[in-house]
Design a protein around this nucleic acid. Structure first.
Lengths: 347, 347
DNA sequence: CACCTGATTTAAAACGTTTGCATTTTTACC
DNA sequence: GGTAAAAATGCAAACGTTTTAAATCAGGTG
């Protein structure tokens, strides 16, 4: 077992062929005699030859890597989708022989600066950008740079053409409303966030559109807002809604973490879900299955999204399609036990 | 804004200096005049110069990457620690200016073959290997290859010197026993797995050692085993233990997933935790906080472990210490509501 | 037997850095 | 003003590939 890495030069020498021929033989070029190709392939296998990535990248301009920037948000805050997302990306990439680079943005670094570094150092052939904000400097940079990328999520500005994949939150929230309406609910609550993320609009608009479609003037919607990562403020906001004597009978939360807070606070203040209150979330995080009585939610299929994003990105890198690629994933309802018929009139 | 990447040659030309000087100036060599260094630094900043990774790697032999192999285990199975682990690694690496490469092993690929590819293509300066089995071909390969690595977990064979970091499962299981013993429990159950992972021995041995230390012959321990990823078999094994009329009053599970199954099955069969049965897990996965009544467990501090692993690995890469680095992390008890005093004699 | 054609193979340049060694420039001293 | 030493800069090779353009070879033809 050689402790050294076999190089093309050594392999060529051992075969009494030129580097050129060996390189071409391994690449499977037709112009190299078939028996030479076979001879080279066998020798390469025996020697355990693996081409040097740096050298290959340098000359070909292709690294075979796709980049993802991982922001560190705080000492105890881990992106709850990261595992699934990364797994999906890996899955999508491996079938094309590509690998993932995870570049970390420390607390004091902007995600954009790390992204620039990844792009400009030539480490990656394309990048994936997640959690798109309403206006997002990363996309502006990538587009003007002409660098291949796929966004997971959308901008607010539709005039800006780019490649994206997104879950159809609008549709899901519409479905949630319809389901709850059919269960007799008329007074709805929406718990949302204050950060300028596009998905909050899409989902809220989806809810509003569904309400509009019913044309029932008795339907009411209360909205309460909290900062995304501030647990204290979130609890406070939720309680503002729950403590109201005229509180909604059904609460839709922008995503599961918020819905779980609603359920916890409801339990803490003596409300029984779903008897007194229906709650619906979005994302289907693992905890949602365990939190009593089991949160009804929509599965965002993060892993599948990531897999498709990887496919899209590799298509963009190799085929350079003229028109941007876009794709909408339909979330599926995961009915559990946190929703039910509207409670009868309260005393 | 240039769509092209600035190269050292261009930068040198614009400064009317040689490539050599510019390279050295940016590297901060003392031999370059201070004012030249400053002039170059400024121009580089202005031009947005970022050195090409491939070229640098090729000549220096250092890629600035650390590798991790991500195995795809199944369409719906995601490594529950992946997010935390990767975040910790990123955190540890970023402070040294290194980045992470995630190489995916498809279902039909061995993790070892992917690992070899990463190592031999020169993509990484070192690798992290997780979930060490009792006997692990990956470590054998890496050692004979002389490639820098840190293992998260241990081998059964202690004669084999290598760099590792592990959580002190033995200690935690000892603590769990002591706590339960002091609550009056004398009949214990251990739910463990059949896969040849070293940690199952360490934890079980820790439990046995604590039992031995008490020297109380009335203490009994039942052990039940299930395959790790087979949910059906797991449920069956747990029920074998729970249905026994002479069942344990306290069950310790090798890790949280198993403990959650115990709690679910207990609830399903009419047992109330912790009144009728105490349950303790290990890992502190997110769901453990939500699963009623709240699982008492040990926090394995995956993120912190990963951060330290990154530090260890970078130390190994740069300093090449003669003796292997090893580190034991002490897990901390997370007391929740799934443990309590031994139930009074049953009818 | 010289020549042409098509099939194989090869030499050499290029990718963008780092670095050993040589060269040029500056400084200090007489 | 000349010289030696010190300081600063530059030349060129090297890293391991891919690729362009050219060279060689074998086989058939006239």
């Amino acid at each position: 077992m050689p402790a050294r890495v076999t190089t093309l030069k050594e392999l060529a020498a051992s075969l009494d062929l030129s580097i050129t021929t060996v390189s071409r033989a391994l690449a499977g070029h037709e112009q190299i005699a078939l028996k030479t190709r076979e001879r080279v392939a066998k020798a390469a296998r025996l020697a355990g030859y693996v081409p040097n990535t740096a050298a290959r990248t340098l000359v070909s301009g292709r690294s075979g890597f796709v980049g993802l920037v991982l922001p560190i948000r705080g000492p105890n805050l881990v992106d709850s989708f990261l595992g699934e997302f990364v797994t999906g990306l890996g899955e999508g990439l491996v079938s094309h022989g590509a690998d993932l680079i995870l570049a970390t943005a420390a607390l004091d670094q902007s995600e954009l600066s790390v992204l620039r570094h990844v792009v400009e150092s030539g480490r990656a052939d394309g990048v994936v950008v997640t959690r798109i904000a309403e206006v997002d400097a990363r996309l502006t940079y990538l587009r003007q740079r002409g660098f291949p990328f796929v966004a997971h999520g959308r901008l607010l500005d539709n005039g800006f053409a780019y490649n994206w994949l997104d879950t159809d939150g609008a549709r899901a929230f519409g479905e949630a409303f319809d389901m709850l309406y059919d269960l007799g609910h008329r007074h709805f609550g929406l718990v949302t966030i204050s950060e300028p993320m596009t998905f909050r609009h899409l989902r809220q608009d989806g809810l509003a559109a569904a309400i509009g479609r019913r044309g029932d003037p008795s339907v009411r919607l209360d909205v309460v807002t909290a900062p995304r990562f501030d647990r204290g403020a979130r609890i406070q906001a939720v309680n503002r809604m729950l403590q109201d004597p005229d509180r909604p009978t059904a609460i839709v939360a922008l995503f599961d973490e918020l819905a779980l807070t609603v359920m916890e606070e409801a339990a803490r203040t003596g409300l029984t879900v779903p008897r007194d209150l229906s709650v619906i979330g979005f994302d289907n995080i693992v905890a949602s299955a365990y939190a009593p009585p089991g949160l009804t939610t929509f599965d965002a299929s993060i892993r599948q999204c990531a897999r498709e994003i990887a496919d899209m990105l590799l298509t963009i890198i190799t085929d350079k399609p003229a028109a941007p690629l876009t794709r909408v994933i339909r979330p599926t309802l995961v009915p559990r036990a946190s929703h039910g018929p509207v409670p009868q009139a309260r005393s």
